[in-house]
Design a protein around this nucleic acid. Structure first.
Lengths: 207, 207
DNA sequence: AGATGGATTGACCGATGGGTTAGGGATGGG
DNA sequence: CCCATCCCTAACCCATCGGTCAATCCATCT
């Protein structure tokens, strides 16, 4: 219909399809979304989807690709000058912001993950590596903070990092999926910082 | 086949069906489980399932019923004598144990919930009430602890309870769904207690 | 023995799912 | 002008899904 100029509109339609797919997969889930629905939402014929993507699974992979590619998350900055507390706050804040800004991508991914469905090995690997990297960075900063007497928590850094991540995940799942009974993220993060740095509100004041 | 005596085996087959359904729904999800699969696993004909339960949805409800009915969770005990810290520990421990012991039921419920699928209002209401009750109890005990100077965390009790619950949920989701990269629940709980009571390991030693 | 009624089944049905096919326009190159 | 190639579609295909039905089995009641 809206052929912009004389160009072939392959990429146009491809993008429309991807957009519709990410939306539907994220809000309804993979299995609950039919190709006909995707076609309807993308305003193309079902056959065209199968022309762009051989199977539904391949569409899923393409969506995954499109979602993941722009976010080469830059956790590992050169912020060596900041003190560990600030670095930890940056790490946690980065995680939270990432989830916040990419809510639909994350729930898309999370749904599929929690549904027990198989994911392509390459992607789980990629995600796991990202997650491990993040955990390692967090662990390291916590260790630094402990060595410098800035972190009040005396547990092993790895254990602490695990806990922090689990708590974050709990908070973010609340954020993503529990539209009612939302908890206030900022005060919750304050608590997390309090756990790490020894103060329960605002700035640290350990010693 | 194994007709125990002369009794009609209606309840036998009904239970077999429910057993198969809870297993499949919990491990594969609602939509990913077909009635034929349930029939196969329960070793009955598909038609018999529809004789016991009018629709797949009704089977789902029956499973939900069977799962929820036995657990009139006894959070609100008469343990007024215990000091608030112990009561909080009991509350948290009870939550964790409940999820642990009913892992398949909980993931069954959680999957359906996270898939965005509708739940019967009565049940969401019931769960929400249970959850609210639990949160209220937790909030109350935390407030008591703060008043008696036993809880180091100085946030509003409600905020603290929210955070504790979110952290718990994160931990339990890790427990239920992330078979790889399991984190050690006990040390994580220790951290939570540390956050609440001011000690990072073992027993409290605030004052 | 015959009738009753719950329990159980194989065979069937319409709808829907993912996926295919044959072909129609547009564009561009020879 | 014709042919090839890229987009794109309506119509079709077949497996599977949730669900139905008529018939059977079997213990019990009369």
């Amino acid at each position: 219909m809206v052929t912009a100029g004389g160009q072939p509109q392959s990429q146009d339609s491809r993008d429309e399809i991807l957009k519709a797919a990410i939306h539907l997969f994220a809000t309804r889930g993979f299995h609950e979304t039919s190709m006909s629905e995707v076609a309807r939402e993308a305003k193309v014929s079902k056959a065209l989807i199968f022309w762009h993507f051989k199977t539904k699974e391949e569409l899923f992979l393409a969506v995954l690709n499109k979602l993941l590619e722009p976010y080469v998350i830059d956790f590992a900055e050169e912020s060596e000058k900041l003190d560990p507390r600030e670095q930890i706050k940056k790490l946690i804040g980065g995680y939270v912001n990432f989830v916040r800004e990419n809510a639909s991508s994350v729930s898309f991914f999370l749904r599929r993950f929690m549904s027990g469905e198989e994911m392509p090995e390459a992607f789980t690997e990629q995600i796991r590596r990202l997650y491990d990297l993040y955990k390692a960075l967090l662990t390291d900063r916590i260790r630094m903070g402990q060595e410098q007497g800035l972190c009040s928590c005396s547990n092993q850094p790895g254990v602490t990092a695990n806990f922090v991540l689990a708590a974050l995940n709990g908070l973010l799942i609340n954020l993503l999926f529990m539209s009612q009974a939302q908890i206030d993220l900022d005060s919750a993060l304050d608590m997390l910082y309090g756990l790490l740095f020894g103060a329960t509100t605002g700035d640290a004041s350990a010693h």
